[in-house]
């Protein structure tokens, strides 16, 4: 008996080829998008905006433009940082450096537009918001002028001093992320705002030290004192656990004093849990760059939990 032709026809040679090429094209597009998002630091801008949104929800501030402003400023600052440190980054992040080098002009113009728009929007938030936004621009110009190199041995030394370097970065971002939405809404400084500042300061400090682990050799060669350089990777892990414990204590204190509602505390704890997981893999995983990114993204789940809990409630 002759067999009936199957109704489920297999793809012909040309259809299979077409499917394969479509898939590979889609994969290329996705890969490019991922690279653009990662290497241009757009994801950091989104993270910063998410952190501002978290602050706004926790402090019950009215909707305003501050997440957008902080996101744009973050993008501009990081793009400028990537462009300024092209030579230094060559050895530690070759793929990112290649991307930035290739798109130098576009990135600079995009950074300038982001910053210009951020400053203009910040004006609508009042003088304090404007001042907060202006600060990175002043650093931008000074950096380009190489004033840091000229004045600079003191500032350079500051950047090379153990803990201080990470603390300065953490301080700058915490002030901006908590201060910007408050400036936009003329909100008074409250103990809850203080708790959020402390939480973000400690978490950002941990974030900043995590990428130092893969850079331990290059930092040691350059004479930069980071925790992994001075105390080693294992002790660094332990120290960062200590910082997380401190943060945990801060959250517990805030809950006990009624400064944080349970939903907010839960959200902050979720963020902290992500951070702890990342720390646990430090020195134990080969995907060190991914660990750094995961630490930077650790506040996003916090916002997700907060939104879910708030909407659910």
């Amino acid at each position: 008996m002759a067999s009936e032709p199957s109704t489920q026809s297999r793809p012909t040679g040309s259809t299979a080829l077409w499917n394969r090429s479509t898939i590979s094209r889609a994969r290329t597009v996705l890969e490019r998008l991922r690279n653009a998002l990662l290497y241009s630091s757009t994801y950091l801008a989104l993270v910063a905006a998410a952190e501002v949104a978290l602050v706004m929800i926790v402090l019950s501030l009215p909707v305003n433009l501050s997440p957008l402003v902080v996101g744009l400023v973050t993008f501009a600052v990081y793009v400028n940082d990537r462009l300024a440190d092209l030579e230094i980054d060559e050895a530690v992040a070759p793929n990112r450096t290649a991307f930035v080098r290739r798109h130098q002009r576009v990135l600079y113009v995009a950074g300038a537009i982001a910053y210009g728009v951020a400053v203009a929007l910040a004006v609508s938030g009042g003088p304090l918001a404007f001042g907060l936004t202006l600060l990175p621009g002043a650093f931008w110009v000074l950096y380009a002028l190489d004033y840091f190199a000229a004045l600079g041995s003191q500032i350079r030394r500051l950047k090379e001093v153990l803990i201080v370097n990470s603390a300065v970065v953490a301080l700058a971002w915490s002030v901006t992320i908590v201060g910007m939405p408050m400036a936009f809404t003329n909100a008074p400084i409250t103990p809850t705002a203080g708790v959020l500042f402390g939480y973000l300061f400690l978490a950002t400090f941990v974030n900043t030290e995590i990428p130092n682990v893969p850079d331990v050799e290059s930092d040691a060669a350059a004479g930069v004192s980071t925790l992994p350089v001075v105390v080693g990777v294992r002790r660094t892990r332990q120290s960062l656990y200590g910082v997380v414990l401190l943060t945990l204590g801060l959250i517990a204190y805030a809950v006990l004093r009624g400064l944080l509602v349970p939903a907010a505390a839960l959200a902050l704890l979720a963020g902290l849990a992500c951070l702890v997981t990342t720390i646990a893999f430090l020195g134990r995983s080969d995907a060190e760059r991914r660990l750094a990114i995961s630490a930077e993204l650790s506040r996003v789940p916090a916002l997700g939990v907060l939104v879910l809990v708030t909407v659910g409630l």
Binding site: Y108, V109, G111, A112, I113, Y115, G116, V117, V119, A120, L121, V123, S124, G137, W140, V141, A144
Partner: peptide, 17 residues
Amino acid sequence: LICTVAIGMVGGLIAWR
């Protein structure tokens, strides 16, 4: 005026470059 600020900032930074 807000557009002027944005244009001025962007233009200034590009001119600086």
